[in-house]
Design a protein around this nucleic acid. Structure first.
Lengths: 329, 329
DNA sequence: GTCGGTCCTGTAAACGATTACAAGAACGAT
DNA sequence: ATCGTTCTTGTAATCGTTTACAGGACCGAC
């Protein structure tokens, strides 16, 4: 004997399927009707089928969250925030890892047309024409956590990393460091490009010259370690700003390996202010780019757009703050 | 104009819906038929609707992964492994956070009856009668990553933490440490209980007495820090084994705060061998309980059971190894 | 008593795919 | 030329819900 369907419940309760459906969805019905249906549901252990329901109402009550790397703690923070908002609204979360390639992102966005989810929240790290086009044409609502041209016509929530860079530099300068190096992630990514420009501008604003700049091949711990020697051979710096926390922690390991003290010899500032920043040692001063808030607001925008797809796209910028810890003097 | 349906494609191609469906599913058809259908699909940009397909074929091609805390890096490792296996098999992954309460887990398992996913991979941290019952009665295949009574009649993949404890102690003793303390997570959880027993047995096997034991309220970094003073006031140890990496890192911070050197004054061993173990400083010697392999094998079992629900349940045990790093002498 | 309005309930038509079944075409063998 | 096979295609039922529509009961007002 297989799962009972709504027809079985109707039969058991001696009413029509429509009445069962109505009771289950809280539409008006007599006391007695509600009672009979609920008893039948109870007895048979009936649970409505999500697949059939989705087909009929055109909604799956699922949302997709697409990130490049689940191992990056900043996405964990974001995911937590998103999950909280969407599950409170009765949605499930489908988490997808896109990897570093833009073609996979495009394929994902196109695939949303299958309708297995009611919306997409994507945090792309590389953006090209194709991606923008696929987002604009996407069958379901999309919200981008990150930077994408306005012509994509889509809600976005992004960080203000130039401002974040300024905060980092101000802090370092205030603590007497002015020979500042920069460890970036890949410059051909959206965050990489933004941070490179932010760093250059912020330095200029303080009338400083860059001492050394290195570029890791990825925003990962391993890539941070690998890229560290590029900075070390250049040398001459008393502080390093890193494009994210993983890179910063990777760098700190290499600094320790060559006997440089943090923050004594070199101050280190990370970005993202992820959980890792307080778990590493010394604890990491980090620019809080508001990942939790970005996640929360992006999720809210997505829910709002699902309710009303005609609202004009909003572009929210979340302001950064600086979490000062022990890696800076 | 809204999304084209299979009927639209059929009309455009001048064939029947059945033929379109057949071509799309690779069933035999003439050269010309294939050609016409594909052109129409191309022209209209038709994408089959996953909701309708699910209803008809009774499959959603989604699997649910339920973990207690996405912030725990061990789950990240596991999730990576699971995602790799299931996406290779054409499934999407729905990630759900259950939190520390068993009632939420039970609700989740019961909710699977809605049929929004074809299977469930759950890693429960507290297990009670209700949970076992709900798992046994679950409408869709379930695989448990963790320890659950055989009577649940379900595939399981679990770690061998007693053996892992032995590895940790052997290592410490070999390095001359024999005043060994233990920082556990909540003892009323499955891993907590297993590790407590494992620790006691392993100590006995080496003819040692426990120096101090503390119990954190959670398997988190913060709980590790909070529980650390319980050990510190007891004192008298030259090594601490921790029930997971987060607790170990939390402890190391507190050790540093009171001026104790790792590994000079105190050796620290973690468990899980998560990414955090090589990111923290000093890098953490950690018992590798095979989270990646557990994830992989659990996913494989789930896929196998979806194919054939009558196979007899398997109970796989993954053997641990020790990753030696700098937190032990 | 009749009429018009509210309610509540049931019947049946969707939603968009897959697939059992039947019918027609093509072809070789007799 | 006829028959039987095989291969391809179309018709229509089906999956399990929701919901538009219509029918019937009930009630109050005239």
């Amino acid at each position: 004997m297989s799962r009972p369907t709504i027809a079985g419940v109707a039969r058991a309760a001696g009413v029509s399927v429509a009445s069962v459906s109505r009771v289950l969805n809280g539409l008006p019905a007599t006391e007695e009707m509600v009672e009979r249906v609920q008893r039948a549901v109870q007895e048979l252990g009936y649970v409505p089928d999500a697949r059939a329901r989705s087909l009929k109402v055109g909604r799956t009550f699922q949302l997709t969250l697409a990130v490049a790397d689940v191992g990056n703690p900043v996405y964990v923070t974001m995911m937590r925030a998103v999950e909280e908002v969407v599950s409170a609204a009765g949605y499930r979360l489908v988490v997808t890892t896109t990897g570093p390639d833009v073609v996979d992102e495009v394929a994902l966005v196109r695939g949303m047309a299958r309708g297995y989810a009611d919306g997409l929240l994507i945090s792309p790290i590389r953006v090209d024409e194709d991606l923008v086009k696929s987002i604009r044409e996407c069958e379901v609502p999309v919200v981008v956590a990150g930077n994408v041209p306005a012509k994509a016509g889509v809600d976005t929530v992004r960080a203000n990393s130039p401002k974040g860079m300024l905060l980092a530099l101000e802090h370092l300068v205030a603590r007497g460091r002015n020979r500042i190096a920069f460890l970036n992630g890949p410059a051909d990514t959206v965050p990489g490009a933004a941070r490179a420009k932010g760093f250059a501008d912020a330095l200029k604003a303080h009338g400083l010259e860059p001492i050394a700049v290195a570029e890791a091949t990825d925003f990962t711990f391993a890539a941070g370690r690998t890229a560290a020697p590029d900075l070390l051979t250049a040398g001459g710096f008393d502080a390093v700003v890193c494009a994210n926390d993983l890179l910063a922690v990777g760098l700190m390991h290499e600094l320790a390996a060559v006997g440089l003290e943090v923050p004594g010899d070199v101050a280190v500032v990370g970005m993202d202010d992820s959980e890792l920043a307080e778990q590493c040692f010394p604890t990491l001063t980090s620019v809080n780019l508001g990942s939790a808030e970005r996640g929360r607001r992006a999720a809210e925008l997505l829910l709002a757009r699902i309710e009303d797809n005609d609202r004009t796209p909003r572009r929210i910028v979340v302001q950064p703050s600086l979490s000062i810890r022990r890696s800076t003097p």
